[in-house]
């Protein structure tokens, strides 16, 4: 260990299409470098696992080197290595886990295999400082939609609800395709929606009043496709901006409603939103409005920390080191369906 008060943690994230490498010291972000294979996936209309895995292998070593260079550090400065052990795409995770094990072994430092969702929660501390205990976290991306109760991100994260079908980001991608907008759909729908009306079309809100904290976006996606097809069949032009805005409104209405319900139910005054969909401008606006009305403090990390990245993994690793949690063995598996009860493996 270096003679400093807080150890430097190298974080590696390869659960989907981004090769993310982060370096943190305690709650201080030193570097957050990303190589994305998104362009290679765009023409397929979604992430192709084999394409992602190939890209991770090629990008890993150069991305680690550029993160070190950016932070002005050398390999010998690294005190621990953290890696996403799951959940995510199995083949993609495996590349990151193999890399992390080799870095830990080669540097003679401890390894921490960590949970991707818990890392999305921990990363906010790099921007907004220590997370209040407890907090509620709403994590929304193309791969996951979860509501979590977070008594302590290093020790205890409880799942309150999740999507029963599509992830929220997935619904954005599918609706974008129906509207002829490019992949990934999120930013395009957000942009298109600014010139449309969120109340133009009353799309269904799945599981709106079912009493659970789960989500469902599959019915909404189908309803949008039906509505658009009916217009097209009648020879009418499709009002893309209104459809985008009304669809987006339905999604963020349900997301924020359930998140605030969770805050109320568990008497928690701090809500964190993370994941790629947290970049959606309407989600941020409506969440702020509803949090203000409910007396809840809202924390949303900046977009570069919301989407999948290595800093979030390093942030959680740093938390685990500080909590004195024992490192992972070098034979840990990558687990594509790692439950949130396993914050580290």
């Amino acid at each position: 260990m270096n003679m400093r008060d807080e150890p430097i943690v190298l974080g590696i994230e390869t659960s989907c299409d981004e090769t993310g490498v982060g370096l943190v010291r305690g709650h201080t972000l030193l570097a957050n470098t990303i190589a994305s294979s998104m362009e290679e996936h765009a023409r397929f209309g979604g992430v192709v696992p084999e394409v992602a895995s190939r890209a991770h292998l090629e990008a890993m070593a150069p991305t680690v080197e550029s993160a070190l260079a950016k932070a002005g550090l050398r390999f010998s400065d690294v005190d621990a290595v953290a890696v996403t052990a799951g959940p995510g795409l199995a083949g993609a995770l495996l590349v990151g886990v193999a890399a992390a094990k080799a870095y830990a072994l080669g540097l003679g430092v401890p390894l921490y295999g960590v949970n991707h969702l818990a890392a999305h929660v921990a990363v906010d501390q790099l921007e907004h400082g220590p997370l209040p205990k407890p907090s509620i976290a709403l994590l929304v991306s193309g791969g996951h939609s979860s509501l979590l109760l977070v008594p302590d991100v290093a020790h205890d994260v409880i799942s309150l609800g999740s999507t029963v079908d599509d992830a929220a980001g997935e619904a954005f991608d599918k609706v974008a395709r129906v509207l002829g907008l490019p992949f990934p759909g999120g930013p395009h729908i957000d942009r298109s929606a600014t010139s449309g009306s969120g109340t133009a079309i009353a799309f269904p809100r799945g599981k709106y009043d079912d009493g659970t904290l789960d989500f469902s976006f599959s019915g909404l996606k189908t309803a949008v496709a039906r509505w658009v097809e009916a217009r097209a069949a009648a020879g009418e032009t499709v009002p893309v901006a209104d459809v985008a805005a009304s669809f987006q409104e339905a999604v963020v209405d349900v997301l924020t409603r359930k998140a605030l319900q969770a805050c109320r139910r568990y008497d928690v005054k701090d809500l964190l939103i993370g994941g790629g969909v947290a970049a959606n401008s309407r989600l941020r606006a409506l969440a702020q409005e509803r949090c203000d009305a409910a007396g809840v403090r809202l924390r949303v990390p900046r977009p570069g920390l919301c989407t999948d990245n290595g800093a979030m993994v390093a942030a959680l690793g740093s938390e685990l080191v500080a909590a004195g949690i024992r490192p992972s063995a070098l034979d840990i598996p990558a687990d594509s369906s790692l439950p949130i009860t396993a914050i580290h493996v």
């Binding site: 190939r54 890399a99 080669g106 540097l107």
Partner: peptide
Amino acid sequence: PYTGLRVGLMTASALAGTV
């Protein structure tokens, strides 16, 4: 088979970087 193949190559290149 690609999944296994990548484990060895990733390990070799990461180890080489640290050593």
